[in-house]
Nucleic acid binder design. Structure first.
Lengths: 202, 202
DNA sequence: GAGGGGCGACCGATCGTTCGGTCGGCCGTT
DNA sequence: AACGGCCGACCGAACGATCGGTCGCCCCTC
């Protein structure tokens, strides 16, 4: 249910906007223009209401960003709390995390994309950056575990591998489409991580 | 020759800023704050001159961005023109490109980072996006060649592999440090691409 | 008639940009 | 050696536009 417009005598009488639909509209604008380059007037125009009406639902521009960042981070941290991320060998848990992270990226695409572009200009952004750092650190720790457990090749450096892993998986937001379901994408990305993006013929 | 300051009686008389040093300062500011969030006053303060003095050297804010984007794109396209990218088997050429691209990312780190964050708000940005698309397309074509030549595993989808490849390599800018030399990084990234980020023990 | 959703008008601040003018060093002439 | 003219680097002040945000009122629904 988004942007329901009831008509009365040919003129729009009711937009029936809620915080949910407005956030969706705003994040979409943040995506195409970037957060800083998006004005509140851009947002209201996209939502079909005036600037002042927008402030009736959200306390300000940063509150919108904050809501989007929270949503993205909740999706990510939920992965770490899931069953498959807490049981099994380190490599099994890593494979599970990779697949689930791809799913979250696609399912919450606009929100996660905004998160991944945050620079740290405001308090909310710095908070998001720190939480992201914590997420990456948890994954990096798991990579280190896997190497120390002897499940991975000995010549890989855990810290570097964790960074490349994060970079590879997160880069999915650059081209993924939110509408269609992930399909085989999570498995394909997991294969790229563990067997190479361009693996030699066997 | 940058930021030569002639002194007279202990007081700075001349900053002698050139387009080169100012661009360097500006790009650094773009990096930390983001292009849109960086004001001309931010730039002048960082450069140690006034806003109006800045306009003596650059025609405007976008001209600075344009110069940075050109520099980054020149570095990237120079890779495709190099010997190793034009000779050898597709896989050999791809390995060469990956290594060289990592080198360029580190050598021209601030400029390439700015390029990778462009959203397409201005004419210069859209031009840069298009040139970037062309670069990626050239690499993607090479991936397709390699697969069709039977040099890679048959179950990898060229289009997807090319995107993941681009994402992995470019993610280096997120954490690389510009000062110290690349060292073994190019080879490590190339190994991650062809053998996996988290390769199983052999 | 009470209240929430929406509106136009408006606020101070800051944006990128422009303008008129100052300062100091260099050069050609004397 | 002294001079006048010139130019590049720089500055303070101000421009119109736009920024995020506020306010009081209206209108519709219950």
């Amino acid at each position: 249910m988004t942007t329901v417009s009831t008509q009365t005598g040919g003129r729009v009488r009711r937009q029936n906007h809620g915080p949910e639909s407005l956030l969706q509209v705003a994040v979409q604008e943040f995506l195409t223009r970037g957060y800083d380059a998006t004005s509140m007037e851009d947002l209201s125009r996209a939502a079909g209401i005036t600037k002042s009406s927008f402030y009736h639902h959200f306390s300000g521009k940063e509150a919108l960003l904050r809501a989007a960042l929270e949503r993205a981070l909740n999706g990510l941290f939920a992965i770490l709390d899931s069953e498959g991320a807490r049981t099994g060998t380190p490599v099994e848990r890593l494979r599970h995390i990779v697949r689930e992270q791809v799913k979250v990226l696609v399912a919450e695409l606009p929100y996660v994309t905004v998160l991944l572009r945050v620079r740290g200009n405001t308090e909310s952004e710095r908070w998001a950056l720190e939480r992201r750092r914590e997420y990456d650190a948890r994954v990096a720790a798991l990579v280190r575990e896997a190497v120390e457990a002897g499940e991975l090749r000995e010549d890989i450096e855990p810290a570097l591998a964790a960074r490349l892993l994060s970079g590879l998986v997160n880069s999915v937001v650059e081209w993924a489409r939110p509408d269609r379901d992930p399909g085989t994408l999570p498995d394909a990305v997991a294969r790229a991580v563990f067997e190479g993006i361009l693996p030699a013929r066997r």
